[in-house]
Design a protein around this nucleic acid. Structure first.
Lengths: 336, 336
DNA sequence: CTGAAAGCGCTTACAG
DNA sequence: CTGAAAGCGCTTACAG
């Protein structure tokens, strides 16, 4: 237990200087191989652990990156962000960095209270994972350390962002529906809620446009209120034959609702989602959706923030990570 | 942006010593109120941020606690642990501590590789959230910083632990079933997998014992293989009338299976779960289950680990957090 | 190949 | 009320 060995202890034991110990332990030149080995062995034996704090002090770098996940826009299924964080932290480890996570609650978000680890200078950079409100974004622009937005962007700021290519994803998903004979296609989602949802909506619009299909106004079905809470879906008088949902959770709810109304999916209605999260496979039928390479997304974010920390400050702007359609059982081919 | 103000800068600006600035900013005695105010104002104006690293160095304390969540035993639904972590980090903040999260993957768990933040002396203590294997537990016993187990315990170690009172929870749940006329009650879960499952199983046994009901051997139904993967449930020849499931996820699967077999829940079979997670409410019917006060659990863990860090080293042994039954629609009263 | 000196930003104990 | 000195554990730049 209680030991707390420092280089000083090792140096004294071996009658060498602390400088020499430091060089040996860091595999630097200027120590004979023999001595180096001896020092390393003793360090091991004494249970020496490197004190990152001391290096931090010298370098003026904490070797930590803060990750902020706003609770606000999270639904019941937090596992997606959890999974992203896991990858972030694993990738950072390779660069000798640790990830410190802060779940930002609504109160702190609205009060624009930055995480304690920022005020304590415990982090060298910030990754914001999930959309935060305008005021918070503004505050983030004025801080002293680099910031990267992950899984959302804000057009009014020049903060680099990494997002899923929502636009292309929804575009291809809609193309797939059209290829299967669908023309009357509805979008389910609050197109004012987040930029992700907007991009998904517009990706669908592009596909419709390309195929000369006009989107009816009442085919855009809102799924949540201004607090992000899901609301009862209001269907148009003339039902579409297919629904493009802004996420799998909503697709899941929609399918349940349709079944309650006595319809079958996909026989009566086709449904597609987005994200490939737990709701896509929990659903009956399982949902055709878009999956993102989380590891690639995380890797891009880490590289981006560490570049900035190291002042290799080339701005990357928006990076988009392409999704991949997962074909399942919620879409049926129909005859026009 | 780039400023990095230290106490030195403030001191120079005001022609006072660094010591005086330190005292003023920390609201200590030995500075006139007037000067104190002047210093604080200037610090604000210059955008001074306290450098926790420097304090850490002096104190030999990082003011971070590491949280380890093993991926291994996590099912699809990671939101429970995510939620516990959120509370942990929020509570720590009140004590001037930050939480650093490490998701422990199977590889590192089997190779008994402790998190980087331990080797870097970046944390003062460790909270292990979720059961890890024997070898890992053993390694944790020999490290230089205090450790607390959260949501599991190991009888062979003297590491303090905080767990849900699984035993009482399952006991009361089973009492409830018996009160509703059930006698043929089955347990669904691998009773060798984790101590939590064991305790839930034995809580049920106690209730049966008290009511003079003998548990048939074939009424203990295994739900997963040795890797923690769910397997097909094997029902006994004579079906019970009620199932006590070791968690809501399994209860959810069971209900689906029963419905596929043409049965109705709760009309033909009653089912209860544990945890009150997403599966309890996603299910049709919604599942009667046991909910834990996550905040209390997190608070107990934080207090426990910080006591140890501060050397107020009274061992607390096992702390149990009582659960609360959430009554829903998956249990039916029957006549014996 | 080896090491004495200075410094990272703070605080504590002590002196004035 | 104010501040000079020492030290936390390391590393860099320099001297021998």
């Amino acid at each position: 237990m209680k030991s707390n060995i420092s280089m000083k202890n090792i140096a004294k034991e071996l009658n060498v200087s602390i400088v020499t110990v430091s060089k040996a332990l860091n595999d630097k030149d200027g120590v004979s191989d023999e001595l180096k080995l001896k020092i390393k062995d003793l360090a091991d034996k004494m249970g020496y652990r490197y004190n990152m704090l001391a290096k931090s002090m010298r370098d003026g770098l904490s070797y930590n990156i803060g990750v902020i996940i706003p609770e606000h826009f999270l639904g019941d299924d937090k596992s997606y962000y959890f999974s992203v964080f896991k990858h972030l932290s694993q990738i950072m480890e390779k660069y000798q960095y640790c990830a410190i996570l802060q779940v930002l609650n609504a109160e702190d978000e609205n009060g624009v209270i930055l995480p304690k680890f920022y005020y304590d200078k415990k982090v060298d950079g910030l990754i914001v994972l999930g959309q935060v409100n305008k005021a918070y974004i503004k505050a983030l622009q004025n801080i002293e350390i680099p910031v990267v937005f992950l899984d959302f962007y804000d057009e009014n700021t020049n903060v680099d962002s990494i997002t899923v290519d929502n636009y292309s994803g929804a575009y291809e998903l809609t193309n797939y529906l059209i290829k299967n004979g669908h023309v009357n296609i509805s979008f389910v989602g609050d197109i004012y809620a987040t930029s992700s949802i907007q991009d998904r909506y517009l990706g669908m619009c592009k596909s419709l446009l390309e195929h000369g299909i006009k989107l009816r106004e009442d085919y855009v079905i809102c799924d949540r209120d201004e607090h992000g809470k899901y609301i009862e879906l209001k269907f148009p008088k003339d039902m579409p034959t297919a629904f493009v949902c802004n996420c799998d959770g909503v697709a899941y709810n929609l399918i349940i609702k349709l079944k309650e109304m006595g319809f079958r999916v996909p026989e009566d209605f086709s449904v597609v989602g987005f994200d490939n999260d737990i709701y896509a496979t929990i659903s009956d039928p399982q949902i055709t959706t878009v999956e993102v390479d989380v590891e690639e997304m995380a890797g891009t974010a880490v590289k981006s923030i560490l570049d900035k920390v190291k002042k290799e400050n080339r701005s990357r702007g928006r990076s988009m990570i392409k999704g991949r359609i997962i074909y399942r059982d919620s879409v049926k081919k129909i005859n026009r």
